[in-house]
């Protein structure tokens, strides 16, 4: 009982914080939040004028081809309020059928070949593919392994013609955003 009251109070406090930030002028807001001793979270949102200049709608689908999950961490970071990828009209989607861009991470493992190909084929034309990270570029540290194979020709072609490589291990969220911009500019 006490727990739930506490929780409700906290929720209301979070709402109030946001409202106060909206309504009050900045200096006053600072003073109020100090007085309330609220430890409101503050952060700088990444500014990318190149990307916010134009309005668009882009759906992205992720495809794991054997990554070390480092690239996934950075992809996931794109959705947090600091990078807030949705404000650019870019959204992660759950189905390859909905996708405009496929983001491939990791070297291409043999065990995943079939699944990866099916995902690629489920995607409607035009198939734009981003190869994310050093692994996806040339295999990275896993380059010479027996478990890695060359990507099927069609996927490779899609990357070369309508996609990009984003180098880095892993690339920072900012680099990924810029890479997405490059793909969009390419078409």
């Amino acid at each position: 009982m006490k727990n739930s009251r506490n929780a409700n109070v906290t929720v209301l406090r979070l709402f109030a914080e946001q409202l106060a930030k909206l309504i009050l002028p900045e200096s006053l807001y600072k003073r109020v939040s100090e007085a309330m001793m609220s430890n409101a979270i503050t952060f700088e949102r990444l500014r990318l004028p190149e990307l916010s200049a134009k309005k668009r709608s882009v759906f992205i689908r992720h495809l794991d081809c054997g990554s070390c999950n480092g690239c996934e961490i950075e992809l996931n970071a794109l959705s947090n309020p600091v990078y807030d990828i949705e404000r650019f009209g870019i959204k992660f989607e759950s189905s390859p059928r909905h996708a405009d861009i496929l983001v491939m991470t990791g070297p291409f493992t043999r065990n995943l070949e079939e699944a990866a190909r099916l995902t690629f084929e489920a995607m409607p034309e035009p198939r734009r593919v981003i190869a994310l990270g050093d692994c996806a570029a040339d295999g990275g540290v896993f380059k010479d392994s027996y478990a890695i194979r060359a990507r099927p020709g069609e996927i490779d072609e899609a990357i070369r013609e309508k996609g990009v490589y984003i180098p880095g291990c892993p690339p920072t969220p900012e680099e990924i955003l810029k890479g997405i911009l490059d793909v969009l500019a390419k078409n």
Partner: peptide, 11 residues
């Protein structure tokens, strides 16, 4: 599992 096998120990 095993889909992501990259042959690390051999590497």
């Amino acid at each position: 599992l095993g889909y992501k096998h990259r042959g690390i120990e051999k590497l």
